[in-house]
Design a binder for these strands. Structure first.
Lengths: 153, 153
DNA sequence: TTAAAACCTTAACCTAAGTTGAGGTAAAGT
DNA sequence: ACTTTACCTCAACTTAGGTTAAGGTTTTAA
């Protein structure tokens, strides 16, 4: 009985995960090293994954798209159960927290946008009052710095 | 007649600019090296700045806050006049362009936020339709590479 | 059975946006 | 005059999020 037939359909190799998720194998190594995903090894020392990893990677990618760092994702993943496969409720909780974070970031961006013409365009440069010029103003609660978004053209 | 009395109020040293703008001296060196700001040298080889530099730095900081990179700022600065000090209109044009960019980014973030619970929380992971899972998504429109959908779990 | 494809590890490299430190000069305060 | 502060250059280091390459092993397909 081969290793692969023993674990049919429930086990993924690194290359298969990579192709399926649209990331490079090296990225999966990297995520594992950072503690974002887990794997075990087969007899030949090759990585094997549970299907659950696919969702994790998708969530990582989704989070990055909205400007959430890998470290933040890692923290969020700590809320997932360790012993069992996360349920839909687990994932929903996680994403609803991020929704709120996003709400805050959107509101903040809107505020900055509204100040933009006033502060850059006018002559006053009111550094003390304007959020655009306030160096201590750290995007909401987390001190994340500016939201890095993908280039949209 | 000293160098400083000759140029009083119209000339800034690097330390004064740094303190006024809330950045480090090394940051100003860095910005200069990147072509974002300019200076000339006094007899002792020390940097001197026109007051205009304060606005440039403020604009750089404001831009960074909304997620605009130094490279993008540099490009935007190319639209400023080289021979004369930029007027309010020059700055207003620059900032109104960024306002539009911000509008797009905000709209994009809102879209992603709205998909967040659906895509992360639900069981389907519809990778072909959802912008959260679409790796090539530059705000819709373009057809992207195929992401093969198989069932997860 | 053998060749190709996939996998392994480790190390070095990449960009962005700076920061830090060493070693030396200039300007300012007393 | 002298001492402290400010400034200079250059090189190396930092973090995030990976990518690439080298050299070796395992798995798979013909």
């Amino acid at each position: 009985m081969t290793e692969s037939s023993k674990t049919t359909e429930a086990t993924w190799s690194v290359g298969r995960v990579a192709k399926r998720c649209g990331v490079k194998v090296s990225t999966l190594h990297f995520y594992e090293q950072k503690g974002l995903i887990k794997s075990w090894r087969n007899d030949g020392n090759q990585r094997r994954y549970k299907p659950e990893v696919l969702r994790r990677i998708s969530v990582i990618k989704a989070a990055q798209k909205v400007g959430i760092s890998l470290e933040e994702v890692k923290q969020a993943f700590l809320s997932l159960p360790d012993s069992r496969t996360p349920t839909m409720e687990d994932w929903q909780l996680l994403s609803s927290n991020w929704q709120q974070l996003l709400d805050a970031r959107i509101a903040y961006l809107q505020k900055l946008r509204d100040y933009m013409t006033g502060c850059i365009g006018c002559g006053c440069l009111s550094m003390t009052k304007c959020p655009l010029y306030n160096p201590e103003d750290k995007l909401g609660a987390q001190g994340t710095g500016p939201v890095i978004l993908e280039q949209i053209d």
